[in-house]
Design a binder for these strands. Structure first.
Lengths: 222, 222
DNA sequence: GAATAAAAAACGGACGTTCATTTTTATTGT
DNA sequence: ACAATAAAAATGAACGTCCGTTTTTTATTC
């Protein structure tokens, strides 16, 4: 049998990794055996080792490819956002986060596996310097918004966008994976509205806000 | 040997569970063997089964007790909060969340183990109906704040407090366990300040806020 | 028949659990 | 106070199974 084409090899790997991914997600990394993977992939046990050196290598390959998929989705998300700090944009960011979580919940399960088994070695890059990345993507837009005077003084656009991003993702992750059914007490739609409004307007009334600001000023708190 | 006193049994269990907890956290549930636990606890392998029916039962007992500890800490936290919607209170909530995460990061690792191995069976209760629980704890305070006119119209105090609680915890968890070193781009202190201000004031300038509200009103969006 | 893929068998070790045995100690009788 | 006793606790070897990986064998294609 002559050497398989690169494409054929890749196809075989896809098959194996797809089976492995489902198993890892369903029952965890250690609870999934190479025999399980071989069976679900329709491949012999020994043959797995023609494609991967170790079981860890399968996990790593899966994560590597999945990270690219998610990165691409995130790039699409950000590319579709014109004015990142407009309330409508934040609301849409939240919607898209919800879709990403619901369509790819296995991705985050893999991340939790990584946290537990590998100290999040493979997923760290998702969080490391997150706000700086947003500043790179939206820097000009942030500047424009500041120049227009859209933002309250002292508000750092990068931090705000990052915080909103995290809040939305965390909301849907808790709903999807942690059993918090309607943990904000309202539907997803209403939760998105509430969170968007919080980021836009805050929660205090004008009256209260004024009195609080005075207090802060008199105390000299930042 | 007659039956050990209840206290003696409990002490022995503490010993076992303390060893098991550390191992589970360090290397995960499946990667930790009963032999590991026995060795670290200074107990024979077989003797473990005089105290627990199965390995799962050890995990469950650990979680049960840890949940009580954390619940108690949370109760203390909430009890120390007089006016839950005051910015100073939210800021303190954030600080306390940070301490809880940093002093008990193993608790959340156990939660991720639970998500992966047991579909979060044991930790669900932490999120299920979360905002309702806050409404139970702070209901009267929420009502008072609303009566005083502290809150912007349309703002639901329960959702707000829950959202802030989630945001703070998530912030510190990402910092501690997911490798997001300064993922908001600023120090923990500054992050707490920023997040508190977002929840209090929002991010938009008065001018922008007014124009946006007009737009919303004309479009009839909620 | 040479080369490569795929399958099968085999390896040594580790797993959770059980169990026959030994050790320990709270109670009892003195 | 103390030794005898009996019941419970502690032990570690053993069980059967499964693990990740390696090696050997078989099948397939040129």
């Amino acid at each position: 049998m002559p050497k398989l084409s690169e494409a054929a090899i890749e196809k075989r790997k896809e098959l194996i990794e797809s089976a492995a991914r489902e198993l890892f997600i369903k029952q965890g990394f250690h609870a999934t055996s190479m025999r399980d993977i071989a069976k679900d992939a329709g491949v012999s046990l020994g043959n797995l080792y023609n494609y991967y050196e170790t079981k860890d290598a399968i996990f790593e390959s899966i994560v590597e490819k999945y990270l690219e998929v998610i990165d691409e989705r995130l790039r699409e998300m950000f590319a579709s956002i014109d004015e990142p700090l407009e309330p409508e944009s934040l609301r849409r960011l939240g919607e898209m986060a919800g879709e990403l979580v619901n369509n790819h919940s296995d991705f985050w399960l893999l991340m939790y596996i990584d946290v537990l088994e590998f100290q999040n070695r493979h997923f760290r890059k998702m969080f490391d310097g997150l706000s700086q990345r947003f500043r790179k993507v939206f820097g000009p837009k942030f500047k424009e918004a500041e120049k227009r005077g859209d933002l309250r003084t002292g508000v750092d656009p990068g931090s705000v966008f990052t915080a909103a991003y995290m809040q939305f993702f965390n909301y849907f992750l808790v709903e999807k994976l942690f059993g918090g059914n309607r943990h904000l007490g309202v539907s997803d739609e209403q939760a998105l509205n509430s969170l968007t409004k919080i980021f836009a307007y805050g929660t205090l009334s004008d009256k209260k806000m004024a009195s609080f600001k005075k207090k802060v000023a008199s105390k000299g708190i930042a």
